[in-house]
């Protein structure tokens, strides 16, 4: 019996063990700081997008919630942080960003409570229209949001009262990376907890989860709220680093792009968000300069190919390659 117990325990621990390839993305993030200091502004935007994609992975990759409106929470966070500074004059970066997370999470909790009772196409439509509705609201509430012209007048104080914002964006890069690290550790802890495994169960067979006594709706709303808060944090960072928020933060295309990034890297594996986002945004930066149509066509084609042949994303494809070799 104890032998079986040891085997079982070892088996379960194996999944959550830290593996050496996990160091690679972090090494790359640190290396970028030294190797390509001219690109740190782009690097900051990539890191913010990774946080956003990571938040989507929690609900899509683990809980199986398909959404076309995740930008709703990114945008809620961005506007919350931006308006806090522009209207109330509070520009302390950490708390302002957390405020974005709180508002994002609140929006996620309220909408999730209502929407997560629905499934399939209905849920898809509801997430999509909820995000657009928020965009239209932001458009109409011109006095507060700046409407179509965007929210200006955001001024952020030096980080920790000391580190001011330099031309090359070093401070922001470091700030964003630390936030990413915290978000990642939170996400990693969650997915390996019993709570996280229950989400995988809901994704795998919701009927069974009802059958083992799981309050499914409550679980989904909880992870949705956590995910939305994380998206709100990303939005808050976005507002701070750009000192400018437009309606675009809530747009359908932002919801779509984060989905594409995540799927490109691979869902349900946390690091898919890193790889997909980095590949997407680097390619975009390079190719869109040459020809926007070429980039758009290319990313469309890539998406079609990924869906048809590499459904587990770039990381999944890598994994398959390694398995085949050995």
């Amino acid at each position: 019996m104890t032998e079986h117990y040891q085997t079982a325990r070892h088996f379960l621990r194996e999944r959550e063990r830290w593996r050496w390839p996990e160091a690679l993305p972090w090494l790359a993030i640190v290396a970028a700081f030294f190797i390509v200091p001219d690109y740190l502004a782009l690097g900051t935007q990539i890191v913010i997008a990774i946080i956003f994609a990571l938040s989507l992975d929690l609900i899509l990759g683990y809980a199986g919630i398909i959404t076309l409106g995740h930008a709703a929470y990114f945008g809620a966070g961005a506007y919350a942080t931006g308006m806090l500074s522009a209207h109330l004059g509070w520009g302390e970066p950490i708390s302002a960003m957390l405020f974005g997370g709180i508002i994002g999470g609140l929006a996620g909790f309220i909408s999730g409570w209502v929407l997560l009772r629905y499934h399939g196409l209905t849920l898809l439509m509801l997430t999509l229209t909820t995000a657009i509705l928020m965009q239209e609201t932001a458009n109409a509430a011109e006095e507060w949001t700046g409407g179509f012209d965007g929210l200006v007048g955001i001024s952020i104080w030096p980080l920790l009262g000391t580190f001011d914002y330099d031309l090359w964006g070093k401070t922001y890069y470091c700030f964003a990376v630390v936030v990413l690290l915290v978000c990642f550790l939170v996400a990693r802890t969650i997915v390996h907890s019993a709570f996280g495994r229950s989400l995988v169960g809901i994704k795998g067979n919701v009927e069974r989860m009802h059958g083992v006594g799981t309050p499914v709706h409550g679980r989904l709303v909880t992870i949705y709220t956590i995910s939305a808060a994380m998206a709100g944090v990303a939005g808050g960072l976005f507002a701070e680093s750009n000192a400018y928020v437009t309606l675009d933060v809530l747009s359908f295309s932002r919801s779509g792009v984060v989905l594409i990034m995540l799927v490109l890297g691979g869902t349900g594996r946390l690091y898919g968000a890193f790889v997909g986002t980095a590949v997407y945004m680097t390619l975009e930066d390079e190719l869109a300069k040459l020809s926007p149509e070429f980039w758009e066509f290319g990313i469309g084609l890539l998406l079609v190919v990924v869906v048809l042949f590499f459904r587990r994303g770039l990381l999944g494809a890598l994994e398959d390659l390694r398995v085949r070799r050995s």
Binding site: R15, T189, I190, S193, F195, G196, R197, V212, T214, T222
Partner: peptide, 20 residues
């Protein structure tokens, strides 16, 4: 079986403790 047991044991709400 672990997923089922975790639910009965009330661990399913805990996002911080490793299931293993």
């Amino acid at each position: 079986v672990v997923i089922s047991l975790s639910e009965r044991a009330g661990a399913g709400w805990n996002p911080w403790r490793r299931s293993s």
